[in-house]
Amino acid sequence: MDSSPAKVTSARRGYWPSMAALVVALPAALAAQTWGSIRDWRAQHVRQPVSATLGQPIDYAGASWTVTRFTRLTGIERSTVVLAEFEARAADPKALGAIPCEVRLADGSREWKPTLFADPVLRQQYPEAEQRSLCGGIAFAAMEPGQPARMVASFSIPAAASSLTLSIALYSALPNYLSVSEPQP
């Protein structure tokens, strides 16, 4: 073991620069290791609303979108059915149809996914719903460029829920999503 004064001095001289390098290297290694997870988390959780108005077309995800109906149907007991109709005119409907689409209804603290068309209230009060498609592939399958693809979503929510917002998100356009507020009576 060589413990000559020259070696000891050289080791002491390198101590603080090494500690300083560690302060930089450690967070950098952590960031490099977790960057993929941070990016995934951001893609899933960070959303940017693009506000739209009922009946007014707005450009989103390479198509012109219009929410044509956003209304409550009479429900059963404490629940009510919310119906949303919307259409999209795309230059390339086939490409748009290949992108997963997510429709949600929220009231600030809670979020509802669309029900399927099995709801008896919907079948009774809006039988033509069965002729419409949910947002996504099937709605665009038979469409020509520029032709409107008409879609519908229904939600089963508590009758007391208020300040509702409809959101339509296409995965290719995230973090942006279309946001339409329930019209006030």
Binding site: R78, S79, R110, E111, W112, K113, T115, F155, S156, I157, P158, A160, A161
Partner: peptide
């Protein structure tokens, strides 16, 4: 028969 695994539960209902 509507058993639990096939059901969907909505917030507030």
């Amino acid at each position: 028969i509507e058993m639990m695994p096939g059901d969907v539960y909505q917030p507030g209902l």
